[in-house]
């Protein structure tokens, strides 16, 4: 079964300097019980994708076409705000990129954790007990006495863990997480990955996971999609992408990972050039202005090349494998 299927999704923002195409023909699916990772350059549209799925696009943004099918029968692109809010409170849980924004600064953490259990029918005491158990799972020290504290009294990573605890308490069908581990130290990051894996096993949920930390994606996700300038340029299993990346952008991205450097270098590798202006997309392949392999065909015609099985790379020269990219 497929929990989420995004088909040909297009999203635009209207700005003073013109219309900006933030997502273009985005298609992918999240199967039941699977974790799908999303990676890509800052500004490539990952958060926009999540916001579109959740019906939380900014006022100047709109879904111009496409479908977002949830659990086989609901098109989230067409769902009204009330129904959407219902889903967000129940079957789809989210952990946002900015944990400070996810918590209400004027309510105690205990109160906020109680509030999200409003459907449970539990007594106040039992709700608090569940909150404490969950906080302990995400390794907040002294959870009992910390329920009365306010968000500003917690460190950055603690707030992130509280946000994760709150999302897990909902036992959702789909957990969407945008950079949920950036504020966590390496031991906690690994523990959080394990926690998400356990959760997936226990309650059978699917995870859509955004991260710039390629190591985390490699450890947690079964499948992944690589985005560039609002388009999915490559998708496949995590193994296929890390060991046999075919899109030049993916290859360059993996090569930039400092995890692959075993000692200090004078200059860190980067990808020359910048993201294209999304108000004026390049013709042909979207990566063509920065691609070493671009030829005449790349400048004129958008590419499409299945590699085999689930592995897809949108590149005219996707036959060039660099061999195992990981160290």
């Amino acid at each position: 079964m497929t929990v989420l299927e995004v088909k040909n999704l297009n999203v635009a923002f209207h700005t003073e300097s013109g219309r900006l195409e933030a997502l273009k023909q985005v298609s992918f699916s999240v199967p039941a019980n699977r974790s799908v990772g999303v990676v890509g350059e800052s500004g490539c549209g990952k958060s926009t994708l999540i916001n579109a799925i959740l019906g939380l696009l900014a006022d100047n943004g709109e879904i111009t076409s496409g479908e977002i099918i949830f659990e086989g029968d609901q098109d989230l692109a067409r769902l009204g705000p009330t129904a959407m809010r219902g889903l967000r409170g129940q079957s789809i849980a989210t952990v946002f990129q900015d944990p400070m924004g996810a918590l209400n600064p004027v309510l105690s953490v205990g109160r906020q954790m109680r509030d999200i259990q409003y459907r449970s029918g539990l007594s106040k005491r039992d709700k608090d007990a569940r909150s404490v158990a969950m906080l302990r799972k995400v390794r907040i020290p002294d959870p009992e006495s910390r329920l009365t504290q306010f968000p500003h009294e917690f460190s950055g990573g603690m707030k992130q863990r509280i946000a994760i605890a709150m999302a897990l308490m909902m036992e959702p069908a789909l957990l969407i997480a945008d950079e949920p581990t950036t504020a966590l130290d390496a031991t906690l990051e690994v523990a959080t990955i394990e926690l998400l894996k356990d959760l997936q096993r226990d309650i059978g949920c699917s995870v859509l996971f955004i991260s710039h930390h390629l190591g985390v994606i490699a450890e947690l996700c079964d499948e992944m999609i690589v985005m560039y300038a609002g388009e999915v340029v490559e998708s496949g299993t995590t193994r296929e992408i890390f060991h046999d990346a075919r899109h030049p952008y993916t290859q360059k991205l993996l090569a930039c990972d400092p995890a692959r450097l075993s000692q200090r270098v004078a200059r860190l590798p980067t990808i020359a050039g910048t993201l294209p202006d999304l108000r004026r997309r390049p013709s042909g392949c979207v990566f063509q202005p920065r691609c070493d392999r671009a030829d005449a065909q790349c400048l004129t015609t958008p590419p499409n090349a299945p590699i085999g099985g689930s592995h897809i790379a949108h590149c005219w020269h996707a036959d060039v494998s660099l061999g195992a990219m990981s160290a």
Partner: peptide, 11 residues
Amino acid sequence: TAGLDVSVQGE
């Protein structure tokens, strides 16, 4: 560099 992709982080 939290929240930056590896290339921009490098930059």
